[in-house]
Amino acid sequence: MDMVLLSPVDLGLAATLILLLGVVSLKLRLHQARQLFIAALRCTLQLLLMGYILKLLFAASSPGAILIMALVMLLSAGQAVTSRMHRPLSGRWSYFLGVAAMFLSSFTVTLFALFIIIDITPWYTPQYAIPLFGMMLGNTMTGVALSMDTLTTTVFQNKKSIEGRLMLGEKWRQAIQDQITAAIRTGLTPIINSMATTGLVSLPGMMTGQILAGSPPMTAVSYQILIMFLIAAGTGFGVILAVHGTARHLFDHRHRLRLDRLT
């Protein structure tokens, strides 16, 4: 079965729904219309650009091009992490730590999937590498942003008790342990919830896409299970790395709480 192709008119019809939502939000004075339209516009432009680049990548199929693409995606994710934080670390440290954590987790897990699990030849086959890394990165980014934001916010709110613990002779890691645990838990909650409800409440986008494209349901399901596991692992390790890195940076070598390193 071939997929029904969507024409610009079809997409225009879908866009009228966004317009309608914008008008309603204006009437209700939700102050969301502007962001909604900008986000919809960005979504369209970015995806068109991505489609165009994927077309080029599929034609070229070179490992260098794939790696450059992955790097651009990674750096954009780092930017998104920082912009979602209420109190990022000063001096671009949130950006560096976020990028490092996502690189170590998303990159490694994606390579593991390409080389060992799916075992596709060549490993950089763009039809596999880019969507896989994109899904990994998108989810890891959400977890990392959420957990780093939770950590810096709760540390700021609990300055008194963290320093109270330092005064009693605790090391920095003990003094901030409660906030580290809370931040990691917050970062992991979305993926745990989504694994627990998938197939019951929600049909994941990738699986839906594969089925729409004509894959047998069981093939789509096995890919979805694989993706869920990879995402959970990538998010989990990324969150743990990002939270510990951020926590470390909030103290100096004399175990002093350095809130001056937050903006």
């Binding site: 609990n158 008194k160 008790s161 320093e163 109270g164 613990r165 005064m167 409660d178």
Partner: peptide, 8 residues
């Protein structure tokens, strides 16, 4: 010993 004690 801080002016305000903390309990966590």
């Amino acid at each position: 010993l801080p002016a305000e004690s903390s309990w966590w």
